[in-house]
């Protein structure tokens, strides 16, 4: 299993896709966090009727960290998700499944190695994306004279959980890629679901009395729950599960896809 892990890790890092997406994620998260940091501080002030605006803005450490520092979990999870989701389809596309299964004919071992190494790379995305969001967000907050709360333990806990949530997303991605094995199809499905279907579902469900509970089990909401909060939940759009339940829900999606993949596409003849 160790050898399989080293092999899968090397597969991931010897091509260019991962660092191109990592750079894109870091840039995008820094930009969003800076924008949001300005929005929740200055924007909040401007909406008040008072002069100067600063003193009627009540930002708890949790509110700041949850909405700004966890922006990577709320809007950036699509990056580790895509990186993970492309691992199996890329092997099919380039016909590298043949050497892969020649080197390790036990397909379950290959699959598990892919899931674990994918989560590992996801953690890199998580740390980098979270650092970018927190770094840019804190810089903007301090430039505007607002507290950054970077000295609070709860902030660091949120940051760590944010990185973990993003690692889980890569895990879910790898598993999804074994079910949807066409590169184009899996990217289209991921983008459509994360950028459109789930947000619309969550908004719609939040309007109903029974829907809020259901919405918190959607994958995006579960991911946000892991980091302990999100821009959505702080904006009053639905509720989130406790962090550990979110973690289990996300793991569950990944495990479900992986099992389905193992008994369908991963089982097939390699011709």
């Amino acid at each position: 299993m160790r050898a399989a892990l080293v092999t899968e890790y090397r597969k991931l890092v010897t091509t260019r896709l991962w660092w191109i997406l990592l750079l894109a994620m870091v840039a995008y998260m820094a930009f969003l966090a800076a924008l949001l940091a300005w929005g929740v501080s200055e924007g909040g002030g401007m909406s008040s009727t008072g002069q100067g605006g600063g003193d009627d803005l009540v930002l708890t450490p949790e509110a700041v960290t949850r909405s700004v520092y966890t922006i990577a979990v709320t809007f950036g999870y699509v990056f580790p998700l895509v990186v993970g989701a492309l691992t199996y389809p890329a092997e099919l596309r380039h016909q590298t499944l043949t050497p892969t299964f020649l080197a390790e004919p036990r397909r379950t071992v290959v699959l598990v190695a892919k899931l674990v190494s994918g989560a590992g790379l996801g953690l890199v995305f998580g740390v980098a994306g979270t650092a970018a969001a927190a770094g840019a967000g804190a810089t903007v907050l301090s430039l505007l004279g607002h507290p950054t709360f970077l000295d609070a333990a709860s902030t660091w806990r949120t940051l760590a959980l944010s990185a973990v949530a993003l690692a889980l997303w890569a895990f879910v991605g790898v598993a999804l890629g074994t079910v949807l094995t066409n590169q184009v199809a899996v990217v289209v499905v991921v983008l459509a679901f994360t950028q459109f279907v789930e947000p619309v579902l969550r908004f719609t469900l939040s309007l109903t009395s029974w829907g809020t509970g259901v919405a918190s089990y959607l994958p995006g909401a579960a991911g946000e729950a892991v980091s302990g909060g999100s821009f959505y939940s702080e904006s009053g759009l639905g509720e989130l599960l406790p962090w550990w339940q979110g973690l289990l829900v996300l793991l569950g999606y990944g495990a479900l896809f992986a099992v389905v993949g193992r008994f369908t596409r991963v089982r097939q003849d390699v011709t």
């Binding site: 160790r2 399989a4 092999t7 090397r10 050497p99 080197a103």
Partner: peptide
């Protein structure tokens, strides 16, 4: 890199 990818599993 192609060869180094499979070297660990080949042993």
């Amino acid at each position: 890199d192609h060869l180094r990818v499979y070297a660990p599993q080949v042993g």
